[in-house]
């Protein structure tokens, strides 16, 4: 590969994060790995960061940190954010821009790429700094696309939460703080209301433990059992489309190609058949325990441990065992 000279790798955090999420640290570490090989600096934009959060970004690899105003009316307007980010990135002469692969990134990043005449690489699952490459998933998670980074192409990428390890690179907090005045522009979009819908305290994409409910819950009682299991485990609660359509959970709790991609230490899949669309969002789980009464269910092809049983009988026993796990 030829000699590359790049000026900056820039990270834009999610404007909807009320506290710094791990994905922001993961992106910062990923940016650092790329920047080291490319001879570039790492600039991170966060929204309303506290001193402690700024320090964390610094130890995870940021050279420069700029604060954006999350309380501004426009901070929930995807179009306004895209225009602002494109302006900042052009001013920064950013060669690589990283955003989180969340609904925020999904809505904002392709517009940023179009405005900057940049390539757009969504759903990045690995950053290989040494080889100057990033990898993304496609075809419902069946294919990995490895994209080489070249000096000719400006790149906007969205990074999946928990895809890259957040690593403390330096103990000293020496990142330079920047004062950036953002001039928001008018937008076509009028955002009238944003309604929070997520159920449960733990964010699905960031969670170490996730409990998922599938068609096998059958009714409110079955669903309540699975929800109780997630409480006992201290897990985030997710579901397949069938359960969302029944109205037991909101769209924000959907796991799969259409919904969120999870990568917990443990995923307990209850009454989930394991369709390709669901697994596109769940196959990065480190360990999967599946409970399903159909021994032929595809989920057992992916699960590390399988229990063939009606979840109404198995989940209460599991709750009983796990409730005492601290004993």
């Amino acid at each position: 590969m030829g000699c590359l000279s790049m000026s900056r790798v820039v990270v834009f955090c999610d404007s909807s994060e009320t506290a710094l999420r791990n994905v922001s640290l993961e992106m910062t570490t990923g940016a650092r790995c790329l920047a080291n090989e490319l001879g570039a600096g790492v600039r991170v934009y966060i929204w309303n960061g506290t001193e402690e959060e700024v320090a964390k970004l610094s130890t995870h690899g940021a050279d420069e940190i700029a604060l954006l105003d999350a309380d501004h009316d426009m901070a929930s307007n995807p179009e306004a954010i895209a225009k602002t980010i494109a302006k900042l990135a052009a001013y920064d002469e950013a060669d690589i821009l990283l955003l989180p692969h969340t609904s925020f990134g999904f809505a904002v990043a392709p517009h940023v790429a179009a405005l900057l005449d940049a390539a757009y690489v969504p759903n990045v699952v690995a950053i290989d700094g040494e080889q100057r490459a990033i990898e993304r998933e496609s075809y419902s998670g069946k294919i990995i696309e490895r994209v080489s980074i070249t000096a000719e192409t400006r790149l906007v990428a969205t990074v999946r939460p928990k895809a890259v390890d957040a690593v403390v690179i330096t103990e000293s907090c020496q990142a330079k703080m920047l004062n950036i005045e953002v001039s928001w522009t008018d937008t076509h979009q009028v955002v009238r209301n944003v309604a929070e819908q997520l159920i449960g305290q733990v964010c699905l994409t960031e969670a170490d433990y996730v409990v998922g409910a599938g068609r096998g819950v059958r009714d409110a009682e079955g669903f309540a059992l699975v929800a109780r299991l997630s409480d006992v485990v201290g897990a985030a609660l997710g579901a397949t489309r069938a359960v969302i359509d029944e109205g037991f959970l909101g769209l924000s709790n959907q796991i799969g190609q259409t919904g969120k991609a999870i990568a917990p230490e443990l995923y307990i899949a209850c009454g989930i058949s394991g369709s390709i669309q669901h697994m596109a969002g769940a196959s990065a789980s480190k360990c999967i325990l599946a409970i399903n009464n159909d021994p032929e269910a595809p989920i057992f092809k992916y699960a590390d441990y399988g229990i063939v049983a009606d979840l109404r009988k198995a989940v209460p026993l599991l709750i009983e065992h796990l409730a005492h796990k601290t004993d």
């Binding site: 940049a118 690489v121 696309e145 490895r146 196959s283 590390d304 399988g306 229990i307």
Partner: peptide
């Protein structure tokens, strides 16, 4: 446009290894 410069190599993602169904006398 720009993506034409992207060098992309595809490969199959390694499938998850399926584990075991846990057996026992009682649930």
């Amino acid at each position: 446009a720009s993506t034409s410069h992207l060098a992309v190599v595809l490969r199959l993602k390694e499938a998850r290894k399926s584990g075991s169904i846990i057996e026992g006398e009682t649930l």
